[in-house]
Design a protein around this nucleic acid. Sequence first.
RNA 1: GGAGAGGUGGGUGAGUGGCUGAAACCAGCGGUUUGCUAAACCGCCGUAUGACGCAAGUUGUACCGAGGGUUCGAAUCCCUCUCUCUCCGCCA
Length: 420
Amino acid sequence: MHDLNFIRDNASLFDDLLKKRFLDPQSKKILDLDIKKRDLLTKSQEMRSERKNLSSSFSKLDDNEKLKLQEKVQQIKLDIDTFEKELSIIDSQLKDILSSIPNLPHDDVPIGEDEGSNKIVKTIGEIPKFDFTPKPHYELGENLDMLDFEQAGKVSGTRFVYLKNQLARLERSIANFMLDKHTTEFGYTEIIPPNMVRDAAAYGTGQLPKFSDDLFQTNTDHWLIPTAEVPLTNLVLETILQEDQLPQRLTAWTPCYRSEAGAAGRDTRGMIRQHQFSKVELVSITKEEDSEKELERMLNCATSILDDLKVSYQVVLLSSGDMGFSAEKTYDIEVWLPGENKYREISSCSNCRSFQARRMNARYKTNDQNKFVHTLNGSGLAVGRTLIAILENYQNEDGSITVPDVLIPYMGNKKKISKF
RNA sequence: GGAGAGGUGGGUGAGUGGCUGAAACCAGCGGUUUGCUAAACCGCCGUAUGACGCAAGUUGUACCGAGGGUUCGAAUCCCUCUCUCUCCGCCA
């Protein structure tokens, strides 16, 4: 949601920034509606004021005067109705526009229509060399009889998978390792949130109204969360926080459900793109002056996991056209997958500034006024894709998987995953 | 799922048609008093938005869970929805 005052004062800047996102200028349409709205508002307020004054003198009048007054007030009421009907139409038009425009890009963000313009910020680790041809994760998993796509297809359909045996445990170990690190080393508070949310929450973080097609909805009109960002960020929905309650750093390991509506034919092999996957999410709620450095901090929390796992990755600053709806600046972390011979996204860390806070009406008190909080979210990391990265990077020629050192205690001191 | 009771400002809690944007108390902020702390006393103390003003501020309107309705006038009456609580049933 955008700040109308900002658009009033910076109309051309607003349009320029939209242009960076390859969107048409909107300020004129918005400000025209705004003027109309304020005009109607003034009129209806004057009439309301008049009505108030009239009716307050009612009891002092004689019967004849009372009758007259009743008629008069009734007429005013009709007028108010007409004005306010028009007002509510304009107001909802205005809201529709404001709530469907994505966040404006930060100055640092490279301009470009798609991922081709993303900027590689840093590359960590070498591309690993193998003495044999590394296999993709799905072959490794199926050979171990620990990934079962076939049966998942029968039971649930495409884009689902069974993890079995040591790979099921590996997934749990990865998540536990991430949660332990984020909570003890980086001060995040662990949360187990609801996995179904209402419209208001999905609206708050920006999934609604535009992206309902990407979500699953239950027959109770709940939405299955596409990421824990939704329930974690909405923990401050409709609240006013004290300054000393900030920053809040929250983490949760949840399943994520995505319809992948627009992804037909993409990544159909393997578990890169599933309807259900698990992710450890990081969310920060900060004061407005702190969000920029919080994004860097969050990025470091996420990459430190990959550092510990000793896999190669690169950090990418997304271009204006590749960023998500709510973000003003986004770093993606891409991990090297030997089986695919390329880097694949494993995390996305975004600063949304006050964009989501406006939608959620989430504020904090300062000395002179209530300000909108800033919200950030990032994967810390996608657990399923981390599992893929481990399978492919730690595979041995015989098809077994070496357990990364940091995960050994979580795996019951097992050092290797193999069929026998 | 059945039955009942409720949702009032940061909290507790008055308020059943006009004088209530809302008593009182607590918390909070500012001040007086006080050797310090405490106490006492005085003042301030909801949100959103419009207009005027350089500003401090002044002023309009709306908001007592949400949305409709009745009325000259609604926190108060009516309807719908929603949430919370209690009891019963069912259940991991």
